[in-house]
């Protein structure tokens, strides 16, 4: 597996003596190339510190980090040349227009002068701000500033995008647009890493995820792997939907060896099983005389709240 980001035993300690805070505690993280990697954790868990180390804004106390093959402490400029970063708590020059801000940043990104304006306008168009290109940033709402922040990260057409809390302050419509943008970037082969404290965001767009808490990486892997490991521990859940007003006999299902619990409400039957019994349940239903009463049989994925709680409690 080719990696975009790899950290090894990464430690970051702020302060010393009694005021010492261990912000990162031996983080081993692997972000595969062309993935959408969600770094989930509550506020103060160390997400921003980790991102800051990755782009060379902070130095680790110990351990190492490699981004796109470059050492984060030795070659941070090379990393920032290839990474589009949306930092947390960023700001723009309010007295300048959106286009002026982006053109200035494009200069620092090393984009040739004849392409700066074109790139800036394209980035503004991508985030839906092209019609506000000549408006001063001081007139922008918080959501518009956030979108402008995303635009500046796109300027240099980077291989890797790192977004720190990208949807903070954005309205639901804007957040949905952002998710579409991330999916599109990912389809183009770009790696996207986003930190968030919103669980649903991880479930909606990420192919891979990691959970960080109090500076420790609790778990990481593909979203399927995370689902799978929770299922293995907490059981597999399936939902059968029956036609309204109908009922199906449950004795046969209850007698299946791995079934732990069955609950029924309205036209919905939820089955909790110790093992993966999707195919045997499907076979049972399709062969049964009440098969016509069944509208659907679907596995129920654990929610991200469950996943988080599971790993928080020790996995």
């Amino acid at each position: 597996m080719s990696l975009a980001i790899e950290t090894e035993k990464l430690v970051k300690i702020y302060g010393n003596g009694k005021s010492m805070v261990k912000a990162l505690n031996s983080i081993d993280m692997k972000v595969p190339k062309a993935s959408v990697f969600g770094l989930f954790g509550p506020n103060g868990s160390g997400k921003t510190t980790l991102i800051s180390i990755l782009v060379g804004l902070l130095l680790p106390t110990s351990g190492s980090a490699r981004v796109l093959g470059f050492d984060a402490t030795k070659h941070s400029v090379e990393i920032r040349r290839r990474v589009g970063l949306l930092p947390e708590g960023f700001g723009f020059y309010d007295h300048m227009t959106a286009l002026e801000n982006l053109t200035f940043l494009a200069t620092l990104d090393g984009i040739p002068s004849d392409q700066r304006k074109k790139r800036a306008l394209r980035a503004l168009e991508t985030v839906g701000l092209k019609d506000r290109a000549d408006a001063k940033v001081s007139t922008f709402s918080r959501g518009m500033r956030q979108r402008l922040g995303i635009a500046q990260a796109l300027l240099k057409d980077p291989e890797l995008l790192i977004f720190d809390e990208p949807t903070v302050g954005i309205d639901p419509e804007g957040a949905a647009e952002f998710r579409n943008l991330v999916r599109r970037m990912n389809r183009e082969g770009k790696t996207v890493m986003l930190s968030t404290h919103l669980l649903y965001e991880v479930g909606m767009i990420c192919t891979h995820a990691a959970i960080i808490r109090e500076g420790r990486l609790l778990v990481q892997g593909s979203v399927d792997e995370l689902y799978q490991s929770v299922r293995k521990e907490k059981g597999f859940r399936y939902e059968i939907r029956v036609k309204p007003g109908s009922e199906i006999p449950l004795q046969e299902i209850r007698s299946m060896p791995s079934v732990v619990e069955i609950t029924q409400s309205d036209n919905r039957v939820t089955i909790l099983s110790k093992n993966d019994m999707g195919s045997s349940l499907f076979s049972l239903i399709t062969k049964s005389p009440y098969k016509d009463l069944v509208e659907s049989l679907t596995p129920v994925e654990p929610s991200w709240e469950e996943i988080y709680r599971f790993y928080q409690e020790g996995g």
Binding site: L57, P87, E88, F90, F92, L105, L108, D109, G110
Partner: peptide
């Protein structure tokens, strides 16, 4: 933060 996120 925006300035320092550039390759400078």
């Amino acid at each position: 933060r925006i300035l320092l996120s550039r390759p400078i």
